[in-house]
Computed example of a mutant assay.
Amino acid sequence: MTKAERALETRERILTAACEVIADIGFEHVSMRKVAEHAGVSKALLHYHFDTREKLFAEAMTHSFAKTGTDTGSEDDSLPAADVLARIVRSMLPTDAELRQDWKLWQELWVRALRDAAARVLAVDLYDQLHAWVAGVVERGIASGEFTDCDVAEVGTLVLALCDGLGNRLMLEDPRIDLATAQSTIWRAIAPALGIAPVFPEVAPEVSPAV
């Protein structure tokens, strides 16, 4: 392994550890020492890669966000657009332990964004990327004839808003909402605009490597 590869591996380990610690105890209680211990690196090495908690938090959020699209197959043009969109919806809900951790990070970001300008800019940027991700699949479905022509931006906004609202209730373990209900509610809301059946597709999760 080259020096550059070792540095990249260390950085990845630190970011993974930071995501886990922040999700576990909240950003306000996180110290660089705790992250270093969890990552199995020295505090000095941690500071070499990230000189402040704020920079570490921003990088951890971006790292977590980048993994969100790992299992959606969004780069596979052979998949029907509806199947890809269903996988995106599922990936934006707390459907498993890893995604619940991601949701905890998002909730930490929302709280910080209310008081911190840099966190607010980061949150808006990540939402822009999510919106573009959804819009790209909708546009592909329209181009292929799978979806009817519609207001792509409006559909994207609706998907994100519903995922946020229902995802929060899933995180709260609201007894009125389970995963199947959340998915079907989102699908029924967007189906008329897309001209598709209002039944959430039964699509097996993609297990390909991260893009």
Results as ranks from 00 to 15, higher is better:
E28P: 01
A4F: 01
L56C: 10
E146K: 00
E139M: 03
S184V: 06
I142W: 08
W187L: 14
T185M: 07
Y48A: 12
D116A: 07
P94G: 06
A143M: 02
R115T: 06
S64I: 09
L93D: 05
L85E: 04
D178K: 13
R13D: 12
A4Y: 04
Q183K: 08
Y48Q: 14
A191N: 04
H49C: 05
F27R: 15
V203R: 04
R13I: 04
T10N: 03
S144E: 13
I25W: 00
A191G: 06
V35T: 05
V84D: 02
L126P: 09
E108A: 12
H38S: 14
A123L: 15
R176E: 00
A135N: 14
D71T: 13
K3G: 03
G73K: 11
P209I: 03
S31H: 06
D178G: 10
D51G: 01
N168Q: 14
I25M: 10
W187P: 07
W133C: 09
R140L: 08
V152C: 06
E9L: 10
R53S: 07
K104S: 15
E202L: 01
V124Q: 09
V138M: 09
W103L: 03
T148S: 11
V89T: 11
R11P: 10
I88S: 01
D96M: 02
T52K: 03
A7H: 04
A44M: 02
F65Q: 12
E75M: 14
E28S: 14
K34M: 13
G145S: 03
H29R: 15
V211Y: 12
L79N: 06
